[in-house]
């Protein structure tokens, strides 16, 4: 082959390679990364009554270029205890829900991974199937179960255990049930993936060497499934912090969660700068968990 043709070919291949890389890179930069810069920008602007309802950062008038970065929105978040309470409420609720998911999900995933081979796929589909139906409708199902005239209260009053209905709807308890119910499959899936890969020879070796069942679990199974625990917990915790639908439908008006507060600032108060500042602070709080999740995921991708 002539050298010039060869370099022509490699050049064309290089160009093709770049085009292939550019397609997802440009799309995601434009529609995923760039929007965050805009959120930052608008969180630093002032709210005005206009369309769109925020003021400009850069103004040019009377031969002076004015760059106004307003920190007012962030200071406003700190000054009003409503917002601090909402952040704290979200993190607390998400943390409790994640722990409950882990406590229910781990034994489930363990049993699935130990089930006979032909059962494993069926069990996996059974666990995942609810998450493929409608999220909204699954949360809605709990409204009919937990309300004052709902199934649980009707049943308990019917058998005479209680005389007046227990208040379960519009409480933090209802929000936690809703999150656990909606996100449990996302906890079980990565746990199962890790536990199924676990080499049973390791467990046999431990038991042959006289290790007690519980010690084997603590020293062999648990450390080897750590990747699944991290992935599952992050898949529940991070979206749960920003959850809107569940606190809105099950938590009632008094539940302070940040996703709901952001929604109300945006849609009801039409205060876009404060909503943006709320989003930026939420992102900052979630940055560590997101980076943790990403590290774990990219390790998975390399394997």
């Amino acid at each position: 082959m002539m050298p010039s043709r060869l370099t022509g070919l490699t050049k064309r291949m290089q160009l093709g390679r770049r085009a292939v890389i550019a397609f997802p890179l440009v799309w995601l930069t434009l529609f995923f990364l760039l929007p965050f810069a805009l959120v930052l920008k608008i969180s630093l602007s002032e709210a005005v009554i206009a369309i769109p309802p925020y003021g400009p950062l850069v103004e040019y008038a009377n031969q002076t270029l004015k760059v106004v970065l307003s920190l007012g929105n962030y200071l406003f978040l700190l000054s009003d205890s409503l917002y601090v309470a909402a952040y704290w409420g979200s993190i607390k609720t998400a943390f409790i829900s994640t722990t409950v998911c882990l406590l229910i999900g781990y034994p489930m995933a363990y049993a699935m991974a130990r089930a006979p081979g032909r059962w494993q796929l069926i069990l996996l589909l059974l666990v995942m199937l609810p998450s493929w139906t409608s999220f909204l409708i699954r949360v809605y199902a709990w409204m009919g179960i937990l309300s004052n005239s709902g199934l649980i209260n009707n049943f308990l009053m019917g058998i005479g255990l209680i005389s007046s209905p227990l208040r379960m709807m519009n409480t933090q308890f209802a929000v936690i049930i809703g999150i656990v119910y909606a996100y449990l499959p996302f906890m079980v899936l990565p746990l199962y993936a890790h536990l199924a890969r676990l080499d049973s020879a390791l467990l046999e070796a431990a038991s042959d060497l006289g290790s007690h069942k519980f010690n084997t679990f603590l020293n062999v199974t648990l450390p080897l499934s750590m990747g699944g625990i991290v992935a599952g917990s992050m898949l529940v915790f991070i979206p749960a912090v920003g959850e809107f639908v569940i606190p809105e439908l099950l938590g009632g008006p008094n539940t302070a969660m940040i996703g709901k507060v952001l929604w109300e600032e945006f849609f009801l108060n039409r205060d876009w700068p404060v909503a943006s500042a709320l989003a930026m602070v939420m992102l900052l709080l979630l940055l560590m968990p997101i980076v943790w999740f990403h590290r774990y995921q990219s390790r998975e991708l390399k394997e």
Binding site: F31, F32, V39, A279, H294
Partner: peptide, 21 residues
């Protein structure tokens, strides 16, 4: 950058994605 942008939407709270877009 690409690998971060591929994994981040999996966990990003929907209110943030929606608002930013």
């Amino acid at each position: 950058v690409l690998s971060s942008m591929v994994t981040a939407p999996l966990v990003m709270p929907e209110v943030i994605t929606g608002l930013s877009l």
